[in-house]
C-alpha cells in the first residue's frame, strides 16, 4: 500500500466531492427556476413543465445518491488507515526477525506473531477492496442518473424550440440546465478515475 498515493487520492476525492455537491445544488436551483418559469406561463408551457418536473425529480434522486456516496467514503478511508496502523506492527516484527538470526531458538513465537499480522493485513486489504467495489457501484449508479438527466435536458431543448413563440427564455434555461449537468458529470468522472486508480493498486498488490 502506497500511503502517499492514497493521500493524493483522498485529496482529489475531497475536491471532487465538493465539486459534485456544488454542482448538484446548482442543478436543483436550475430545476426550481424552470418550474417557476413554467408556472408563470400557465398552459402555454405545459410540455416544458413535464420536462422541468422530471428534471427536478431526478435532481432530488441525484442528491440522495451523492449523500450515500459521502457515507461510503469514510469506511474506505478508515479501512486503509487500519492497514497502515497494522503494517507498523508487521514491520516491527519483520525488523526483529531480520536482526535476530537465532530467533527460532530464542523466541519461537516471533515468526508466528509476524505471520498473524500479515494475515490480518491481507484480510483488511480484502475488506478495503470490497468497500471500494461497493463505492464504485454507487458511482456507477450516480453516473447513470446523470445520463438520464442529460436525456431530460435534451428533451427540454426540443420542447424549448417548440415553445419559442411564447417568448419565455426556455433556450437559456435549457442551456443552463445542460451546463450544470455537464459540470457534475465531469466531477463524477474524475472521482471515478481516482477510485479506479486505488482499485488498480489494490488489485496489483493482492
Amino acid at each position: 500500500m502506497n500511503i502517499q498515493h492514497i493521500m493524493g487520492v483522498v485529496d482529489a476525492s475531497f475536491a471532487a466531492r465538493q465539486s459534485i455537491e456544488k454542482a448538484l445544488r446548482e442543478i436543483d436551483r436550475r430545476a426550481l427556476n424552470a418550474m417557476v418559469l413554467v408556472k408563470r406561463h400557465g398552459n402555454a408551457l405545459a410540455g416544458y413543465g413535464v420536462v422541468a418536473q422530471a428534471f427536478r425529480e431526478r435532481a432530488a434522486t441525484l442528491k440522495d445518491s451523492a449523500a450515500h456516496l459521502q457515507e461510503s467514503i469514510a469506511p474506505l478511508i478508515e479501512a486503509y488507515m487500519r492497514i497502515l496502523q497494522h503494517q507498523r506492527f508487521s514491520d516491527s516484527f519483520e525488523q526483529m526477525l531480520a536482526h535476530n538470526a537465532d530467533h527460532e531458538k530464542h523466541c519461537p513465537g516471533l515468526r508466528s506473531t509476524q505471520k498473524k499480522w500479515q494475515i490480518i493485513i491481507v484480510e483488511e486489504e480484502a475488506e478495503a477492496k470490497a468497500v471500494l467495489e461497493r463505492l464504485l457501484e454507487m458511482v456507477q449508479l450516480l453516473q447513470e442518473g446523470i445520463e438520464e438527466q442529460e436525456y431530460v435536458v435534451t428533451n427540454g431543448r426540443i420542447e424549448a424550440a417548440l415553445a419559442e413563440s411564447t417568448g419565455a427564455p426556455l433556450m437559456r434555461v435549457s442551456r443552463e440546465m445542460g451546463e450544470a449537468v455537464r459540470t457534475v458529470a465531469l466531477a463524477i468522472r474524475s472521482y471515478r478515475h481516482q477510485l479506479e486508480s486505488l482499485e488498480h493498486e489494490s488489485s496489483t498488490h493482492l
Partner: peptide
C-alpha cells in the same frame, strides 16, 4: 491515540483535505 487513528482520519477528511 494510535488505536483510534483510522476513525479520526476518516472523520477528518470529511471536513478538510489531508494536504
Amino acid at each position: 491515540g494510535f488505536e483510534i487513528f483510522p476513525q479520526v482520519f476518516a472523520a477528518l477528511v470529511e471536513a478538510v483535505p489531508p494536504s
